[in-house]
Amino acid sequence: MRIALTTYSTKPRGGVVHTLALAEALAAAGAEVSVWTLGRGGDRAFFRPVDPRVDVRVVEFAARDGEDVGERIVRSIEVLHAGFDPAGYDVVHAQDCISANAVGRCVRTVHHLDTFTTPQLAACHERAIVEPFAHVCVSGAVARELADGWGISATVIPNGVDAARFARADPGRWRDRFGRYVVAVGGIEPRKGSLDLLRALALLREELPDVRLVIAGGETLFDHRDYRVRFDRLAGELGVDPVVLGVVDEEELPGLVAGAAAMGFLSTKEGFGLAAMEALAAGVPLVTRELPVLREVFDGAALFAAEPPGMAQAFRSAIGTPDPDRVVRGRELAARHTWTAAARTHLELYRRLTDTHPGGSR
């Protein structure tokens, strides 16, 4: 079976990480897999090496000065559409809004649902939901949102995680560098709940003043500069001096996560929580927001809270009186989520779809 997976970037965002891991697992299962993406800022390859069994196609996307977010996304769709060649694939599977708009008839994974007020972005989001002929969600909670909002029935296929990579990580140099710290992965942006994380850390530090906040990641298409100004202002007001690392090298990330006293995963919207699952694989206590999707995925393995005071209390419990049984449950949960299983279920879906829809997604 020949499969094209499409994504919007070469950078280490959750959907891109998912796309590459799934592609490699599908190739290991015997499929012929191509990954198509846009090469932003001169990129000609992904943020990490990709299994040579996967055919990587990077479509050049030149930077353009003065372009706002809506214009950049519309141009992203146009450039990927012009560069993508669907010929010969049994299945074209888009992993995000941009590539779903760009590649035509396809299967679509809806990782999470967004709310946009800009007409261009709202229209892009809507088309990427209603036009694909089949849908995958990485959690039941998001599948229920699709069913309730659009009457769409999606196949639920949870993410995998490279649990062994995080379980064997050496945290030493990061602990030497930062001491006791809470880690957050994904950058500073509204969807990641970064302001609530600051507020929670300020409350936590009233009792545990040595705990630092370390934030990794942050590559995104959206312009969060105003939010970052608010974040920096609030950090100063609260007396929290976060360490903002930006994008961390792929080889360094497991050690950074494993060295943390806890992970703060306080997203306001999520589809699964891959970074949080990686923390559990490393044996790191997880504090996450009280959301249906995160309760579905992490119940029994994480501490949940809805507001900063409760989040601070959860961090206090996780760091001050860690629960070894919860750590064991977290490691076991991560170990059950394999990319091999995810690839097998995807292949079963693809076979059903190609039997039902001759010609697949072309």
Rank of each mutant, 00 (worst) to 15 (best):
I3T: 10
K11W: 11
G14E: 11
A28K: 09
S34Y: 13
G39I: 10
R57D: 02
V58Q: 14
R64H: 11
V69T: 14
G70Q: 08
G70I: 01
E71C: 04
R72P: 00
S76G: 13
I77G: 04
Y89L: 01
A94T: 02
Q95S: 04
D96T: 05
S99M: 03
G104V: 05
D114H: 11
C124M: 09
I129G: 00
V130W: 00
G140A: 06
R144T: 09
G149N: 07
W150M: 07
I152D: 11
S153L: 07
T155M: 03
P158S: 02
V161Y: 11
A167T: 00
R168C: 03
A169L: 13
I188H: 10
I188R: 06
L195G: 02
L203S: 10
L213T: 07
R230A: 15
G246K: 14
D249C: 12
E251H: 15
L256S: 07
A258P: 07
A261H: 08
M263L: 13
L266Y: 14
F272G: 04
A275Y: 05
A279Y: 02
L280P: 01
A281H: 10
A282W: 05
L286K: 04
R289D: 01
V293S: 02
V293P: 02
E296K: 05
F298L: 02
D299S: 12
D299V: 06
A301N: 06
L303V: 00
A305H: 04
E307M: 01
P308A: 02
P309C: 09
M311I: 15
R316W: 03
G320N: 07
G320C: 09
T340Q: 15
E348S: 14
T356P: 00
P358T: 10
G359A: 03
R362L: 13
